[in-house]
């Protein structure tokens, strides 16, 4: 009898991926070798097992969320760029210019370049109108905001695509409402900021460090820390509208409903202490960057999308941030 056949060779045999000579050798061996024939059957069952593994169906809210994100994406494009002369609408995006057209995939081979942007909103896109509106407010808040005038305050780590005169900040940045999150059943406070940073995967840590520094400066100006440890927050020092039951949902910060933001921070923090909540953008799309204290020292960066709430983190990215020093 010839040598036994390896599992990989058998798998290649089954896949028709062997040269003719090898194939006939394997076939001949299989005919006379119960051990390899059993292995061959097992391999067949691997495919069958993979095919039979169940998977959850797509939840309807995912469809809504993605359509809303597409609508928000549209809202972030040229219209918002017009309010920001000299600044790209989506800094850091590959080919982030302003194409005049988009290819029509369905008409492949024909009118690919003739596909024009639709001027009107469809009911489909309108389903995401709330999110789109939020995105517009964020863009306007970031770019229409006050520019820090002291050149020396421009934090390191910003690309040329960031506003050249310094770090744009929204008017709400200095007066962001004190909001709350729950950590281990205790109420804790945080003040969201909007540093105007377009966070990028590769520079996330340095960008977050500068955001933390800006947040620190703001806290010093305001005379109180922007976040507080669980259990140390009383309702007396909370912004009245933000903490009053039922009032939170009517408030927003940088276009995000306060209630959703509080829920999002509670969900992401998952009991950890929150160090920073920066409502802005990540790779050009609306996102909230949350920094929490890590159990073993240092901290953790979480980037949540515009769908982040108590029920869904909409997590886009996360990274660790080693303790400075």
């Amino acid at each position: 009898m010839t040598r036994h056949v390896s599992a990989e060779a058998l798998a290649r045999y089954r896949e028709g991926d062997l040269r003719r000579r090898r194939l006939s050798r394997v076939r001949a061996h299989l005919a006379g070798c119960p051990r390899c024939a059993a292995l061959d059957r097992d391999l067949a069952r691997v495919t069958a097992l993979l095919a039979s593994a169940p998977a959850p169906a797509m939840p309807p809210q995912v469809t809504d969320r993605i359509q809303a994100a597409l609508a928000a994406e549209r809202a972030l494009s040229p219209a918002s760029a017009r309010h920001t002369p000299g600044q790209p609408a989506r800094a850091g995006q590959p080919g982030g210019g302003q194409p005049q057209h988009a290819g029509q995939p369905q008409h492949a081979g024909g009118g690919g370049r003739g596909w024009r942007l639709a001027a009107a909103w469809s009911p489909l896109a309108a389903r995401g109108a709330a999110v789109a509106a939020a995105a517009v407010v964020i863009a306007a808040g970031v770019y229409g905001g006050i520019q820090l005038t002291a050149g020396g305050q421009s934090a390191a780590g910003h690309s040329a695509a960031e506003p050249a005169a310094g770090i744009a900040r929204s008017p709400a940045m200095s007066g962001g409402p004190l909001l709350h999150y729950l950590a281990g059943g205790k109420k804790a406070g945080f003040t969201p900021v909007s540093t105007g940073t377009n966070f990028q995967p590769r520079r996330l840590r340095s960008q977050v460090r500068s955001a933390l520094q800006q947040d620190e400066r703001l806290s010093a100006e305001a005379g109180s820390p922007s976040t507080s440890a669980p259990g140390t927050t009383s309702t007396q020092n909370a912004a009245p509208n933000a903490s009053a039951p039922g009032a939170g949902s009517s408030q927003s910060f940088a276009g995000l409903p306060v209630a959703a933001l509080q829920g999002c921070v509670t969900r992401i923090a998952a009991g950890s202490r929150v160090l920073l909540v920066d409502v802005g953008r990540y790779q050009g799309r609306p996102a909230t960057v949350i920094v929490t204290a890590a159990p073993g020292g240092g901290s953790r960066i979480w980037v949540a999308g515009s769908g982040c709430a108590r029920s869904d983190s909409d997590l886009i990215a996360q990274a660790s941030l080693p303790a400075a020093g």
């Binding site: 469809t63 993605i66 597409l70 609408a89 302003q98 988009a102 369905q106 942007l117 469809s122 489909l124």
Partner: peptide, 25 residues
């Protein structure tokens, strides 16, 4: 800016089940 949110939304709707199947698996 590239695509059209409306047409893209429809494109997504048409393919979502299959795309989801890939992502979830």
């Amino acid at each position: 800016m590239a695509g059209d949110a409306d047409a893209f939304g429809q494109l997504f709707l048409r393919h979502r089940d299959r795309l989801w199947a890939i992502a979830i698996r």
